[in-house]
Amino acid sequence: MRRNDREITDKRAIEEFISKQQIIRIGLIDNGEVYIVPVNYGYTYINGEYTFYFHGAKAGKKYELAGSNPSVGFEIDGKYKLLPSETACGYSAQFQSVIGNGVLSIVDDEDERIEGLNHLMEQLTGKCNYEYSKEMLSSVTVFKLQVKKLSCKAKF
């Protein structure tokens, strides 16, 4: 990180930020080109390690790329506020962001699929322990991103 003065290393502050956001951008590789997709997420933070869950269709580019190249990058940002100035180059912004990389996989185990969907729903609604019909579970893919490296940066 170029601006070490903006790095956040407090694990509680990072987790609090992640817990309040709703969109994670996943960067996948598509024949040597980067393909970025924004998705809603849920997560776990166990023993100092993050695992993100999100869902999607059982077909399409995200599904295909997840199976062909599991190494991904990701980004979450928020707390954005423009700081105006009298001159164009004087403008700045407040923000906080998390970036990192990890390994993406498709969750096959039904219990873990339900767990992942419940983490996603809890992130979005504040409630968990939903019930899912067999039809719904069979029509959706649950993705799991196990974080290998993560950093957080902010300007307040």
Rank of each mutant, 00 (worst) to 15 (best):
I114R: 03
Y41I: 01
E7A: 05
T9E: 06
L104E: 00
K79Q: 15
A59L: 05
G116C: 08
Q21E: 01
I14H: 03
G67K: 05
M136C: 13
A88K: 12
L83H: 12
F52V: 07
V34Q: 13
K20Q: 09
S68A: 14
G67T: 00
A93I: 13
G48R: 01
R25A: 05
I8A: 03
E86C: 13
R2N: 06
D109M: 03
Y41W: 06
Y80D: 09
G60I: 01
A93L: 14
E115I: 12
V37M: 11
D111L: 13
I29S: 14
P70A: 12
T125V: 02
V142A: 12
V34N: 13
I26T: 10
D30C: 06
E16L: 13
N129V: 08
T141S: 08
S97Y: 04
D5S: 07
F143I: 04
L28F: 14
G100V: 05
C152T: 05
G78D: 07
I18E: 07
E135A: 15
K149H: 14
V140T: 03
V72D: 06
G73T: 04
E7H: 08
S139Q: 13
V103Y: 14
Y80P: 03
I46E: 15
K144R: 10
V34K: 12
A88G: 11
L104N: 03
L124M: 13
T51S: 14
S92L: 04
H119Y: 12
L28Y: 14
L104F: 01
E115Q: 15
L145C: 09
F95W: 04
S68W: 11
S133Q: 03
V34R: 12
F143L: 06
K79C: 13
L120F: 01
V147N: 05
A57Q: 01
Y53G: 10
D10E: 04
E131Q: 15
G60T: 07
D30I: 01
R2C: 08
N40I: 09
L28A: 13
E7L: 04
E7W: 04
Y130W: 09
R113K: 08
V98T: 06
G126L: 04
F17E: 01
H55V: 08
Q22F: 11
I18C: 02
L83F: 10
K62C: 00
R6Q: 09
E7N: 00
I8H: 06
G102Q: 01
N4W: 12
G56K: 03
N31H: 14
N4K: 14
L65N: 00
Q94W: 00
H55N: 07
I8E: 05
P70M: 10
A59M: 03
E110G: 13
T9R: 04
S105Q: 08
S92A: 11
E131N: 15
L82C: 12
K62I: 07
G116R: 05
Y132A: 05
F52P: 06
V142M: 12
Q96W: 02
C128N: 15
T51P: 12
I18H: 02
T44V: 11
S97N: 02
L104S: 06
F52G: 06
K134T: 10
Y130G: 03
H119A: 15
S151D: 10
K81E: 13
R6Y: 06
L117G: 08
K58T: 03
D30K: 10
Q21I: 09
Q22C: 12
V72Q: 07
T141D: 07
R2M: 04
S71Q: 15
Y91Q: 11
D77K: 00
S105F: 01
G100W: 02
P84Y: 02
A59S: 10
G73N: 08
L150Q: 03
